[in-house]
């Protein structure tokens, strides 16, 4: 983590631009990525809980899929 950058800012900006058809202000992408990080945290946490519930060892595709819709709904504006 220290040496490399956390995420490609330009890519995130492009993604959001493409989806919203709006320009993104200079530093809004940082907040967007923060939101994305929160989403990922939520997703992974829920997925790990789900995996533990299902008796799986690690996080599996099944648990992630099961949880995806829920955490997406949580982050809906």
């Amino acid at each position: 983590m220290p040496g490399q950058k956390l995420y490609p800012r330009a890519t995130v900006k492009k993604i959001v631009k493409a989806h919203s058809n709006c320009s993104v202000s200079k530093n809004a992408d940082v907040m967007i990525f923060l939101d994305y990080m929160l989403f990922m945290q939520n997703l992974v946490k829920e997925a790990s809980i789900e995996a533990k519930k299902g008796g799986e060892r690690g996080i599996t595709a099944r648990s992630v899929k099961k949880v995806t819709a829920d955490s997406l709904a949580k982050f809906k504006g």
Binding site: I15, V16, A18, S20, M40, L43, T68, G77
Partner: peptide, 14 residues
């Protein structure tokens, strides 16, 4: 899931 998230986020931000 992250693709879906960005899709949703883009729409909401828009």
């Amino acid at each position: 899931a992250s693709e879906w998230f960005f899709e949703q986020l883009g729409e909401d931000l828009e």
